[in-house]
């Protein structure tokens, strides 16, 4: 077989493949599956593990660098590192949204989170509920630790745990699509929506709402679960819109 024919049947390295890698890594970074500051494996290893060529991987890393989600350092101790872009300056990111867009995000998110919580209440079993309480207890422990006050590390951990809680509620709905949508919405707006955690001032209020959601899911009270999950998102959205309206351009 000549070389041209061999090329026809070689693995497809289309831009679609680049996009898949970008989305997988970007989602993982945005919701904290890959932690801020974490070093990624070497390009060769990462390409091998993702099953893509190094060319594809480099293109994907370039796209992530442009979004500020990956930082590459050269030389000794160099490599690619995860960056949580919104964590650097969330207010700059907030400025990019009009209040109307934030309201729309909130509407969409409330619909997803509300339905997911209702279904979770109708369908969950004890093994689905246990992780919710475990996550909430972990959040309380982080917020209560004396060294937590004002620490960026504690805030980042709380944000990750908050994301985990909402993904666990969505997964308890038994709907893969709602869970994927929850993860996508968190990637889009999660880091902003949970801004009240900056400084931990809003933790008590947020924690009370989380416990109300988990409690309604545990009792099997679908309507209550939906109502509190919606209110949780809409309260956070309203807080965010107020913050946005006070920001000068």
């Amino acid at each position: 077989m000549n070389m041209a024919r061999l090329a026809v049947f070689s693995p497809v390295d289309s831009t679609a493949r680049v996009d898949v890698v970008v989305r997988r890594l970007a989602d993982a970074i945005a919701v904290g599956l890959l932690a801020d500051g974490e070093q990624l494996p070497s390009e060769a290893e990462l390409a091998g593990r993702l099953g893509v060529s190094t060319v594809t991987l480099r293109e994907a890393l370039m796209a992530l660098r442009q979004r500020g989600m990956v930082e590459t350092r050269r030389g000794r101790g160099g490599g690619s590192f995860v960056r949580l872009p919104a964590g650097l300056d969330p207010l700059a990111r907030l400025r990019a949204f009009a209040a109307d867009e934030l309201r729309d995000f909130g509407d969409h998110y409330a619909a997803v989170a509300g339905t997911a919580a209702r279904l979770a209440a109708e369908r969950s079993l004890p093994s689905d509920v246990a992780p919710l309480w475990r996550t909430l207890d972990e959040m309380d422990a982080v917020a209560a630790a004396p060294e937590a006050a004002g620490s960026a590390e504690a805030c980042a951990r709380l944000r990750r745990l908050d994301g985990r809680f909402h993904i666990e509620v969505a997964a308890a709905s038994q709907s893969a699509r709602l869970t994927q949508e929850e993860i996508r919405l968190q990637a889009d707006i999660g880091p902003l929506l949970w801004l009240p955690h900056e400084g931990l001032s809003g933790h008590d209020e947020t924690a009370a709402q989380h416990r109300a959601i988990a409690g309604a899911v545990e009792r099997g009270d679908g309507e209550q679960a939906r109502a509190v999950a919606e209110r949780h998102v809409l309260d956070a959205t309203r807080h965010l819109i107020e913050l946005r309206l006070r920001l000068r351009e």
Binding site: L46, G48, L50
Partner: peptide, 8 residues
């Protein structure tokens, strides 16, 4: 070919 799961 199969891919290895990448997770921290």
């Amino acid at each position: 070919d199969p891919v290895q799961l990448l997770r921290d």
